[in-house]
Design a protein around this nucleic acid. Structure first.
Lengths: 139, 139
DNA sequence: CTTGAACCTCTAGTAACTATAGGTTTTATA
DNA sequence: TATAAAACCTATAGTTACTAGAGGTTCAAG
């Protein structure tokens, strides 16, 4: 049996976040002490690790809830889980594409401006004001 | 003079978002009609375009506020604006790095699972449960 | 002069937490 | 065993950047 603090340390998930997940019905303590304090078993450690890992991968809580539910019905088809992963993969790909464009433009903006210059001629501000200077506006 | 709807169309910023920015003291209407409706001048069109552009680049409203303030003091040094852009560039670079790792892992996860298989053997769920299978946990 | 689109304010909801207040339980040490 | 500090408890509010809705007013066209 682990306390919420121990669970927190083991999984690198903050105590308040664990309680938040409980409110969202993602993990429940195995039991409560006489003084009403939460007790967790190894099972919960693994479940929370799962959640943490999925969150690190950027999956939303709703997707995670779906996967947990799927996990609870092992006889069912894996197609749904696959779909969750695939959908998320596509989102990530999209994000990377956009961020690369941003990187390019920010680089141009940041280096175009030699610090020491007055704001009046500052390239950063000019660039952000003027869409004509930018070739990657559409995201 | 433009109405809030016209401003919205010109800048591709939703009406409610414009009002939200006003609440946050980022843009004020030039005046109000007798019936209390907002009126904007060309100046505001440009300001909102600036905000929109900076948002598209992922800058937070606080950074944008800083840049606007800098823009209002053209005699000052451009170093601060430069710093805002540079800081943000670094954040973007970091994000790209992380997302690329995620992409790799998600790809592995999504393709490792052949749909049609029962959840019991599903690779997606297995991978998310088991950190040992993953080599890019630390983000 | 009427109707409907566009406007108004104010409140609440979204995601995913984080932080605070004010109080209780557990644990370690004297 | 007493006490003090650390860890826990609940409940509420704040964060970011919006978005949506209710309920009401103003404006422009026909």
């Amino acid at each position: 049996m682990y306390s919420i603090g121990q669970l927190s340390e083991m999984t690198n998930v903050k105590v308040s976040t664990i309680r938040f997940y409980e409110e969202k019905k993602l993990i429940m303590p195995t039991n409560r002490s006489e003084g009403n304090q939460r007790g967790y078993s190894q099972n919960e450690v693994e479940k929370l690790s799962f959640i943490k890992h999925a969150r690190d991968l950027g999956l939303g809580l709703e997707s995670i809830r779906k996967l947990i539910e799927l996990n609870n019905h092992p006889e069912e088809n894996c197609r749904d889980a696959h779909e969750v992963a695939e959908t998320h993969l596509n989102l990530v790909k999209e994000k990377i594409k956009k961020l690369k464009k941003l990187e390019k433009e920010l680089k141009r903006i940041a280096t175009g401006c030699s610090s020491g210059v007055k704001v009046k001629e500052c390239y950063v501000i000019k660039s952000l004001s003027d869409h004509k200077l930018c070739n990657s506006t559409k995201h």
